[in-house]
Each structure stands twice: as structure tokens, then as C-alpha cells.
Amino acid sequence: MNPLLGAEQALLGAVLLDPNQLSHLDWLAPDHFYRPVHQALFAALRKLRSDGHPAVGADGPVPLSWVTDAAKEAGLHVRGLTPVYPHTLIQACPRSEHAPVYGRMVLEGAIHRAVAQHAIRLHQVARADALRGEVKGALRSADVLAGVLRDLARRWGTEPRPVAPTTAPGAAPAMPPVRGDQVAEDERFLLAVLAEQPRAMEEVVDWLRPGDFANLAYGQLYRCLGALHHRGEPIDRITLLWEAQRRGLLADGTLSGEQLTAICDGVGAGSAEWLGERVMRSSLTRTAAASARAVRALAEDEALVPGRLINYALHALGPLDEVRVRWETANGSPAPKSPASTPVPDGPPPARVHVALARSTPRPVPPSSVLPGSAPTPSAARPPSRGHS
């Protein structure tokens, strides 16, 4: 038998045997159950309790009407519930006083399902945004997923904080970018503009990173451009080729001289900022889809307890948060510029050194501080189970 199905059946059987067990399950909701018939039954049992059914709080054996009334009420909201099934649930319950433990198992399964469902949603929206050339939907879905993780942490009684998995999960196969031809064209055009107009690096250097390029070779070429820019050296076809050779990109086959020449000889007229934003937009939706796949893989690992699942999932959203901060920097209001420093003859300006260090060692985005919630704890004393009359 599936362990989750067994837990749902045992929990409902415990409540059918002992209605007072509902007082220990106020933190559990009907939608935490996987099977619709179980959702309807648990909702019916809670309704009977709130309506003051005679079986709740009564001394002595539990009247049979508790079972029949629950089945009748549930049958109004779900199809396929037979009068025999509640008795099957009673037989599936080993001990009715273990209902809170069974409920915790049901909640654990619900947490895994909720995380997986929202991760799938984020992946779908990110791919759709990539097709439309937008990012709002992906960012909104990422916020929803993060909010769900924090809410689930509160329900489970743990503190939501990003934690890296102790063992690195198996890397999922990389998916090609949506509209890959257009993405590659934007990246190639941007590099041509930066090679032709070295001053254009100032427009993108603060927020565009080599990892934002879908094409590995283009990302490495952008790294070479950034290195020349940070050192204050001239940028042209020869210096760029020399920098690529110094970094071993020609020897390992990442780049070829023909590729670099084709980019440098391409049309170099255009707006680096506009092209950079297009590359950044593609990077954001691609990162959102990758984070969604990572979260879904975690949610489908049944061996992960909810606390670890939530914190690992928050960690998996970290790369998306980092890209998002840079995207907002690229599209937000420009920060007030400080007075230009006087260039030092022996080296590049201090502002350029600061940017170079920031690019080399990007600071991680600190997680938002969230007060830990606490889940209701079941009472220590539980009434003994009672039989039906």
C-alpha cells in the first residue's frame, strides 16, 4: 500500500472511531488530503462537529449515526462514495489515539504536492514569458512560490531559511532557451556593438554578467571584453583575440579565431543597453525555469522531510533572486552618480576598480528575515478510543 494513502485512511478511520480526535487536528485542512473522497469525508466530519453532532463529546460508545451522517454529508460533495467505504477506513486504523501522527503524515504529503505544483506553475509561466519576451509573469509566480514555502514552513513549525543540500542533487539536463535563434542573435549583436563601441561597456557592465549569456562561448567573450574594460585597455579585434588566447579559450575550443573575427566585423551600430536588457530578460526567464525544475526535483524526493524540502527549495530560488536584483537595477531609476574621481596615472580610476571587484566577487543577496511560525501541537492527553454501538 502507498504510505500516504494508508495514512489518510488511518486518520479518517481514527476520527470515525473517536470523534474527539478532531480536537487534535485543527491544524489540518481538507485540501491537505490527496484523494477527493478523503477531502470530502474530512470536511464532512468537521462540519458535523461544528454543527454539534451528538457523537462529539458524548460518553460511551460512538453512535453509528456518526458514520452514516458523515458518509451522507460527504456524498453531497463527491461522487463514488459508497456506504461501505467508511467501514473500510475504520478497519485501516491501527490505533485511533495515533490520529495526530497520521495527520502529520498527511500534512507532509500535502507539502510535497504543493511545492511541486507551484514549481510546475513557475516553469510553465517562465517558458510562456520567454515566448512573449516578458518577465512579469515569471517574477510573480516566483513570489507566489516563495510565499507558499514560507506559509508551509509556518504550518510545519520550522524557520524558513535557504539551506544548501548536504549532497548536491543530480544536475538536470539543460534545456535549450526558448526562441534560441533569436536569443543567439541578440547576444551576437550585443557583442558586436561592445567590440565596435568600447564606451558602450559602461551601459551594461554594472548589471550584465557572463552567465547571462545562453551561449557559453559568447559569455566567455563578454568576460574578455569586461577584463579589457576593467583594466582600461583598448578594445579591438586584436586585443580581444589576445585576451581570449590568454584565457585558454582558443586552445580548449570554446572560441575560434573565425568566430571572434565574424563578431568584430559584424554590424556594430546599436544600443548596448537595449540589447543587454534583451539578453538579461532571456537570462531571467531561463533562470526561473531552471530554478523551477530544481524545486520540482526536490519536491518529488519523498525521502526529504518538509523542513529540509522547504529550506532546500528556498536555496534553489537563490540564483533567480540574484538575477532579479540585477534586472531591477537595469530597469530601475538610476542611482545618483558620485563625483568622478581624478584618474590615477599608475592605475585605473577607483570607480572602475570597485566595479571590477564587484563583478569578480558578487555579493550574495541576503535572505529576507521572516519570523518563524509555530504549528499547533497536539495535546499530550488523548481520550481512549471508543467502539460503535
Rank of each mutant, 00 (worst) to 15 (best):
G180A: 14
L298T: 00
L64D: 15
V37R: 15
G219T: 04
P384Y: 08
S389Q: 13
E322G: 07
W274H: 06
P345I: 10
N215G: 02
D51G: 01
V148K: 14
M201R: 10
A299H: 05
A70K: 03
G232M: 05
G276P: 07
S282G: 15
I90H: 09
P384H: 14
T239S: 13
V115E: 07
A70C: 03
H112G: 09
G75S: 08
G147H: 07
R382N: 01
G147V: 00
R278D: 01
D181N: 02
D26E: 15
L255W: 05
A316K: 09
H53Q: 14
R386L: 05
L228N: 03
P334H: 02
G109W: 08
Q182L: 07
A114M: 01
R79N: 15
R95E: 11
N331D: 05
A116H: 10
S283N: 12
T68V: 09
C224W: 04
A43V: 01
A70E: 03
P319N: 08
R386N: 00
S65V: 05
E185I: 03
R49E: 11
P349N: 10
V37F: 10
A7D: 10
V305W: 14
L4T: 11
A92S: 14
S256M: 00
A58N: 03
A114G: 09
S283I: 07
P349D: 13
S256Q: 02
A200R: 01
T261G: 05
L149P: 09
E134G: 10
